[in-house]
Nucleic acid binder design. Structure first.
Lengths: 208, 208
DNA sequence: AATAATAGCGGACAATTGTCCGTTTGTCAA
DNA sequence: TTGACAAACGGACAATTGTCCGCTATTATT
């Protein structure tokens, strides 16, 4: 049976990713067009589009390393403080999450636009909400929220639903707005988010 | 001095809006291109683009009537229940808001994409966050939240910040996800939102 | 009414996104 | 080696978005 694969395919993929990374850092994600990436990498448009149908897909790939680091951070963090109260763990995860979102605003915006927009056009399976990063975040938050819920320290709420809402409120454009137009530092945003979204779910800190 | 204005300009604007409305309801907002609208209305592209640089701008105009009705609803609603507790008023506004967002998903998605995306490209003054609808919502919610805060019934939080977060969590794509993929009815979404975002801000319902 | 002046129309044009198909190139069988 | 086969390359092509500029039509003036 004949199932040949080119060995240079993988090399081209890496060439494309490297080129895109370069152009993005040089000119900014928004100013770089798909054709520009293809041309700079010296490949045909189809070669690029066959791998990444939209800039968002490419960004998702580029952010992968960063996200894996972030994921490991979260897992280590959770392991290192597994004996602390669940509220503290939630806060820690949230803080790390906001920092990640702030660090990666440029790529995240492109991802958000492409994937969310795409979702709107066709009923593709590949949506923002089914991407591995989203699912990891959602599952991590849901677990912590469920534990909080089960521990009886909170008012009643639906953990999975609440996790969706938490992530929605961290949309890159929201954060950008709060930071640039509204003049809040990342720390201030974290503090307010904890105060507004998380702490109130827990029953009075100064117990009866 | 000579400052002639064409009187047919306004008529063309209305022709464009009517045409767009028709095409949108016939084929869906996403499937209709700007040129298609111009052609169907029998005007040049520039005539269309001079009025609305993006589909989102057009949608913002189209939604205007609906939004004004919504705005009046909210104002009447608030007037009719001005003597009820602020928590109840907040809940009522929120419920009406979610219903509006669910009814107008199609247009709101297009608006969201264009305005939020545009914001990302150039530092235009005209952003999603400075559009009249956003500002009305934000100011209405902020007032109610501030009143709640001042009445001493709540935990401490920043009303304006919280209003931003509330609106962010109602992004059309989030609602669509919760409704279509997650299978929640509008009522269920409202209930969970109130339970997750609003009620917890208020001190124990069963007072000490 | 005739004229001057300009607001603003319209379609051609440029740029970007996304697709298709003829051709290349690596792999396996003989 | 060589030949056959298909994975996958590349650039031409179509579609959509967004811009520019010559020309028309309306209005104020005489």
């Amino acid at each position: 049976m004949v199932t040949p694969k080119r060995k240079d395919a993988q090399q081209l993929t890496e060439l494309i990713l490297d080129t895109a990374r370069d152009l993005f850092t040089k000119f900014g994600v928004d100013s770089v067009s798909m054709h520009q990436i293809a041309k700079a990498a010296g490949v045909g448009q189809a070669t690029l589009y066959r791998r990444y149908t939209q800039k968002g897909d490419l960004c998702l790939e580029l952010i992968d390393d960063h996200f894996n680091r972030f994921k490991n951070d979260i897992e280590q963090l959770l392991a290192s403080i597994h004996d602390q109260p669940v509220l503290d763990r939630l806060k820690a995860v949230f803080r790390r999450l906001v920092v990640f979102a702030s660090d990666e605003t440029a790529l995240l915006k492109a991802i958000h636009i492409s994937l969310v927009h795409n979702r709107c056009i066709e009923n593709d399976k590949r949506t923002f909400f089914t991407s591995p990063p989203y699912m990891f975040l959602h599952s991590t938050l849901t677990h912590l929220l469920k534990e909080s819920q089960d521990s009886g320290q909170t008012v009643p709420f639906d953990p999975a639903f609440t996790a969706h809402i938490y992530i929605a409120s961290l949309a890159p454009f929201t954060l950008q707005h709060l930071s640039e137009d509204y003049g809040m530092s990342t720390d201030a945003i974290v503090e307010q988010l904890l105060r507004t979204l998380i702490c109130p779910l827990f029953k009075p800190n100064n117990p009866e």
